[in-house]
Design a protein around this nucleic acid. Structure first.
Lengths: 77, 77
DNA sequence: TCAAGAATGGGACTATAGTCCGTGGTTTAA
DNA sequence: TTAAACCACGGACTATAGTCCCATTCTTGA
């Protein structure tokens, strides 16, 4: 999987899980609102410094942007 | 630890372990020779796309750039 | 010593990361 | 209906990632 797409998925996943809007996250991370949107759509190629800012704002670690999300819920018995 | 410094240490560690010079790695990754040097010295803020190219050339994964290296050899008995 | 490979360093340049401002679409609540 | 919150999307702009070229230093081996 492409790193960019992986970051896109994981960022959205982590942000939504925290209950943050793109705008609120952008403010917390000190970056531009539209850029969050573009990263989540896989349109951008962010720097590690920027990922670090976002990770801090999400109280997450950078590696979480590069790990594969669990494919699905384990089927209920 | 700063992400940039972490990447610097891990890149050098992985490259040296592979027995590659900065120049050979740069050629394999399709990037500029001097840029490898600057990343390893923590002077640059690379993009995820570039890290991916380097990781591929090293036959490593991006997450390895962000994990803490083992602090030391376990002391021989 | 000398040569040659490895790394650092800088300056000028080009490509693109990242900002800023605005528009419009969708959904939900009043 | 309207307001408000969220998000996709575009264009123009500025900052910086990344290249290219050249010189210098430091090892290490012959």
């Amino acid at each position: 999987m492409q790193a960019r797409a992986l970051v896109a998925r994981n960022l959205r996943r982590l942000r939504v899980r925290r209950g943050l809007s793109q705008e609120n996250l952008a403010v917390d991370a000190g970056i531009d609102r539209t850029y969050v949107s573009r990263i989540e759509r896989g349109l951008e190629n962010p720097t590690v410094g920027l990922l670090e800012q976002i990770a801090d704002a999400l109280d997450a670690k950078i590696v979480e942007f590069f790990s594969l999300p669990n494919p699905a819920e384990p089927p209920p018995k």
